[in-house]
Amino acid sequence: MKKIWFFIALTAVLFSCSDNNRSNNNPYIPNYSVNAYLDMNLPSYNNLRYVSNPVYVANYGAKGIIVMNTGPNTYTAFDAACPNQELTSCTAMTIDGIYAVCSCDKAQYNLFTGLGGKEYPMKQYRVEVSGSVVHVYN
């Protein structure tokens, strides 16, 4: 019985140390509500059917969102705002292959991880897939 409690406690500690909280407490990007449904049957989102083909979606989050298929039924979604710049100083990040590039400092962020070697990673959103619909939310 002690082993089970130890395992539960260890699991709770490991999951509470996630860096996801750091990316979502970015002082430069406000916490806008995001609730997007992207139907991959539509031409605008058809590239999400294929691995490593990111798609920019305007009108969500601070500067839009970037969604990418990272593997079988696995997706990432990040805010397109530059995570290490004032919100008003830069336009939305652009997509360059599997990277998002900030218009202000030209920093590149990996769309698999959201990391870019700067203080703050990209602001991440949750993703669920049901059939051909990708749901991005927070």
Rank of each mutant, 00 (worst) to 15 (best):
R49L: 08
Y45V: 05
P30G: 07
M122V: 02
Y75C: 09
L38V: 06
N24H: 07
A36I: 00
V51N: 12
L87A: 04
M40Q: 14
E128M: 10
M68S: 09
V55Q: 02
W5T: 11
C104V: 07
P121V: 05
K118T: 08
P83E: 03
P72E: 04
N25T: 14
N69G: 06
C104A: 13
G131F: 07
M68T: 10
V51T: 10
N138A: 03
Y32S: 10
L10E: 04
M40S: 10
Q85A: 10
H135K: 11
W5F: 15
R126F: 03
A92D: 05
K106M: 13
G61N: 03
N110M: 03
N110G: 04
N35G: 10
F7A: 15
I95T: 05
A81Q: 01
N73C: 04
L10C: 14
Y99G: 05
N46A: 15
G61Y: 02
T74L: 10
A100S: 07
S18V: 03
Y32I: 06
N26F: 03
V57F: 03
T91E: 14
K2I: 03
N47R: 15
L48V: 01
Q108E: 04
S23A: 12
V101F: 04
F6C: 08
D96P: 02
V51I: 11
L111W: 06
K106N: 15
P43R: 12
L14H: 03
D105F: 09
V133K: 15
A92Q: 01
S33A: 12
Y137W: 14
S103D: 09
D105Y: 12
S132N: 14
Y50C: 09
V55W: 00
Y137P: 00
A12F: 13
T74R: 14
A81M: 02
T91I: 02
E119W: 06
